[in-house]
Design a protein around this nucleic acid. Structure first.
Lengths: 340, 340
DNA sequence: CTGAAAGCGCTTACAG
DNA sequence: CTGAAAGCGCTTACAG
């Protein structure tokens, strides 16, 4: 900047104003300065501004390692959207993959202790203990795609409840009266909320909830376990995620049960498993774009004003209709007397 | 720092030295300062140091968007290793996913124009035009997992040549004499080098190269195409990657050809497709850890001294033996006269 | 419309 | 072993 100023015989203040398009410089001079800057290959020193402002213009994005494995591109996609929105605002996203060791050992990212970021977006459920640690950080933070009832940290989540409710409604409308839910209710808030949406649909249609039709799919550590099918098979399954729906379809098929003719199955997430499955899964697509945008906007407002609070923001999902749902078998028979 | 200094009645210089474990402060005072720092919740301001040093202690990692899709966790894993090694050296990795638009429009990352990083590691093949653009950047840069013959940019790559050579040798040792190579030789340097390793093995064993046995797998834009099998089927296939090997196995199986009994197939990468395949693929595992370590070390040396050059560094891969290879059919018959 | 001065929080080189 | 001074490259508040 000084070099540019010297070459033009003006002060560095003027150059700064021109390059930032601020008032107080004639348009003519501004233009001259900008042209020369490009010519001289000038690159803005963001560090100097950070120093002055006390703001790094970086936001840390924390993703637990277990959500980054093979076949798990979802969070990477979300991260990508986040950075795009951040860049639109002159910010950068710095990805921090939280490994198990640090999560269990309650180690804060060096990003924090080195003052490298102005705030954190945590993308994906972390342990209760780590949530407490995150709370203790003296910067704005928010949770994305999960929340914790005991903390006051702002969060942006898919409207799991309503999406599961609507998806179950679809099954009911197709004549299903015996519908199972597949998922460990104590594992994540997503699974819980999706279950409650399923339950709301049952309630609304005066269908009893049968505890035998709530099927566990994973142990406490999130590892998938064999699904125990009930004695008397339901005609439809609401699965908490596509991967489990995929496993379930495989299991049913291997038992000689046809999907969707004999059993309908729906998933959640619209990830690779929804397409890998045979038949392809009817499922719910998360609105990644909207979630990323909301999280970034809220975060930047919090950076400006640390007292801003947004609470829990729900983003609606979209049902994707594919081939894993059909009318309930009994209904089919009733509807087609020709088959008698 | 000033606050700490004031509370202890010393200067901020002394505090700085103590916190950085430099000479010139008594051990006693150092200890006192460190304790107080923790007590006061002091967080180091990395920005200030950056300002002074003219170094951001950040390294940009550029991954082309097309390598981050579903089922492509490889580069994310590499990124994770890179950041781990960077952190060990007091550095941070900033991920920049290069979207197609920016790659075609030759837009440099804002990370560069904002002086946010001290160097770039490009992870995954980019277009020739973009390579030229990268060259024009006035910071240290290096390529990871690919290289370009026309540029003098340092690179770290898997030793594709030798790994493919060794893998082909394995097939030859199993009695195979008609071995195909599957891959578009004009697509990436990896595919080319793997082909040459395959060719070297043929040469060494005095086996003629049959052009009909070089099978294309993708078009210019990298989209997979249907593989055209030759009239007379070889007894083994060396595929340039696991995904293509997986597709090939599916195709062979659907044609009623048994793998590996009638045809052996080997892949490359040891990714999710190697395990998805039935039978599981014999393949080459890239030494991610070693590649990441080498890239980071070289990069940091270049940051210290921009004139340092490392050229092309090859990292050896490991063959993973699974179930997609068996002895050549004719050999089998010769070996087991009991079957007559 | 233009610029001199101060300051962001560190580190380095030097003096004591 | 300890500290006063200068400086990294910007921006902001103020004076002209």
């Amino acid at each position: 900047m000084r070099d540019i100023a010297d070459r033009l015989g003006v002060s560095s203040v003027t150059v700064s104003k021109a390059l930032n398009d601020k008032d107080g410089v004639s348009d003519e001079l501004k233009e001259k300065i900008k042209v020369l800057a490009v010519e001289m290959g000038y690159r803005y020193n963001a560090t100097a501004r950070s120093m002055k402002e006390g703001l790094t213009h970086n936001i840390g994005v924390i993703i637990p390692e277990r959500f980054t494995g093979p076949t798990q591109s979802f969070y990477v996609r979300v991260f990508q959207r986040i950075t795009r929105h951040l860049e639109d605002q002159g910010y950068y996203g710095i990805l921090h993959i939280l490994n198990e060791e640090d999560e269990e050992g309650l180690t804060l990212p060096k990003l924090y202790s080195d003052n490298k970021v102005d705030g954190f977006i945590v993308l994906g459920q972390i342990s209760k203990e780590y949530i407490e640690l995150v709370r203790s950080m003296d910067v704005p933070k928010m949770f994305l795609d999960f929340y914790d009832e005991h903390s006051d940290i702002d969060s942006v989540v898919t409207d799991n409840f309503y999406a599961a409710y609507e998806l179950t409604n679809v099954l009911v409308q197709q004549g299903h009266r015996s519908i199972a839910y597949v998922g460990n209710l104590y594992s994540t808030s997503s699974i819980q909320d999706r279950f409650l949406g399923y339950y709301k649909s049952l309630l609304e249609h005066r269908m009893p909830m049968n505890p035998d039709l709530i099927l566990n799919d994973r142990d406490e550590r999130g590892t998938f376990i064999e699904i125990d099918l009930p004695e008397s098979l339901p005609t439809a399954f609401v699965c908490n995620c596509d991967q489990v729906a995929h496993l379930l379809v495989q299991k049913l098929t291997s038992l000689g049960i046809q999907v969707p003719q004999q059993c309908s199955v729906v998933g959640f997430d619209n990830d690779i498993y929804a397409l890998l499955s045979e038949p392809k899964l009817t499922t719910v697509e998360v609105d990644v774009e909207q979630m990323a945008r909301t999280a970034v906007q809220s975060m930047l407002k919090k950076v400006d004003n640390p007292n801003r609070n947004f609470g829990r923001v729900h983003v609606k999902g979209n049902i994707i209709y594919r081939d894993s749902v059909s009318a309930a078998p009994e209904t089919l028979e009733m509807q087609s007397p020709t088959s008698i």
